[in-house]
Amino acid sequence: MRYSDLGIGALLLFFSLLAPGFLNNYQLSFLLQVLMMVTLAQSWNLISGMTGYISFGHGVFFGVGAYTGALLLMGGAFWWVAILSAALLAAALALPLGLLTLRLRGPYFAIAMLGLNEVGRILANLWVDLTGGGDGIALSPLLSPVLATNYFSMLALAVLATLGMGWILRSRFGLELRAIREDEEAAEMLGIDTIRNKLIAFTASALLPGAAGAIYAFYTSFIDPSSVFLPALNVQMIVVVLLGGRGTLWGPVLGAVLLMSVQELTWAEFPALHLALLGLLMILLVLYLPDGLLGAWKRIGSRYG
């Protein structure tokens, strides 16, 4: 991480830490959701932005985390134990999936991930004994942590995700991941263990969505299959990364703040319209702004600066 990155990070962190002091509950909830989106987008950035293997079903880890967190909390676990277990379970799910599909080069991973969020929702609906099916799970307010605690947990996750990304971008591991994205065959020829690297990136990228799901469950204190295996969430994290700039450190942060703010002000109330516009935005971004706002900013800067 460069000094300027550390500066930006410290400034953002400073405001986020003070935020509960001067924001009302509605504003704090909104900020919590922005931080959640930062976490999810950074995770997606790690597997898809860095390696170019697109995960179309990353929402499944969020959903699994939400159910794990809620069920463990009801079972009497400490909230932070529940969050930790949710993260680990999500990663434990990612590992065999990766083993199956990341051994192969090409589109197989993307295809296998495509319907996974849906599969998660259907299973959560069918497995009534565990999940309560369509009725969902209501958490007693006595059990779940208060809003400020949830806010700080989510902040910790977002910071962890961004720090982790900053470290990976400067590390040999990050370099190897980008080599895979640019030319996997060449990377392999240079002695990079591509399968191992892809597997580590994918498994790690499932950890934080799992934890975020658990915190989200505490925060809303009610979850059901369609609220945590939410198609919109699945799509949002992709659009956020594309908007900000894939494979960059601050792209997901910038994208999350922008997209969540615009959505909050405009079309979040109409689910189908919301998703249709996200789909359109995705096409336009990939075609006309492939390196996102940060990339465009850098290009303009280097032209006039």
């Binding site: 589109p107 992709i238 319209l273 998703l275 996200l278 789909g279 359109l280 995705m282 096409i283 990939v286």
Partner: peptide, 16 residues
């Protein structure tokens, strides 16, 4: 990656 993302966007757009 590009073509997957674009046709995915198209699919979401058309479905919704």
């Amino acid at each position: 990656l590009t073509s997957l993302l674009v046709t995915y966007g198209l699919s979401i757009l058309l479905m919704n």
